[in-house]
Amino acid sequence: MYSASDLRKGLKIEWEGTPFEITEFQFVKPGKGQAMYKTRIRNLLTGTTQERTFREVEKIGKPDLIERDLQFSYAHGDDFVFSDPETYEEYTITAEQLGNNRWFIVEDMIVAVLFFNGKPIDITLPYFIEKEITETEPGVRGDTATNVTKPAFIDNGYEIAVPLFISQGDVVRIDTRTGKYADRVSTGRK
């Protein structure tokens, strides 16, 4: 158990049976009143955030969270299947649990999978992944400006804004934290 005075930004806690991460934290103490900790916490199961004030007397749970490196095998509908590279044991995470990360998983990629009470709940992707552009307007050769963009799609249908010089078949680097185009890795068909 944690006591409220252990709380700090970044700490993962269990509250009412759900794992949360503290994303904002503020010590407050009204005149003559008790010490309290005003926090914003992110639900690690759903990704949603909420505000919550913890009082000093509250006991806060330590969540049973572990991280394991698993390999992404395949997606079947909304189920994303990961396997242990040594035991081949398979674990399923739903698209909803993955949130935006679902678009950036590359086949055979090794990712850190977060388990809560033995069940996989989330993954941590590398900051950058590479994906091929499968659909976009023809590229404008020589236009190297990156601030003017056009819509494009990657194989799984994710829409991304890319600079005008990008063509179908180009491989681009995507920042998984923002979901945005970073740079071009290689060109496809000439």
Partner: peptide, 13 residues
Amino acid sequence: AERFDVDLVEKVE
């Protein structure tokens, strides 16, 4: 008592 302090910092102030 419990609600007073929490509501003071969360709602009133």
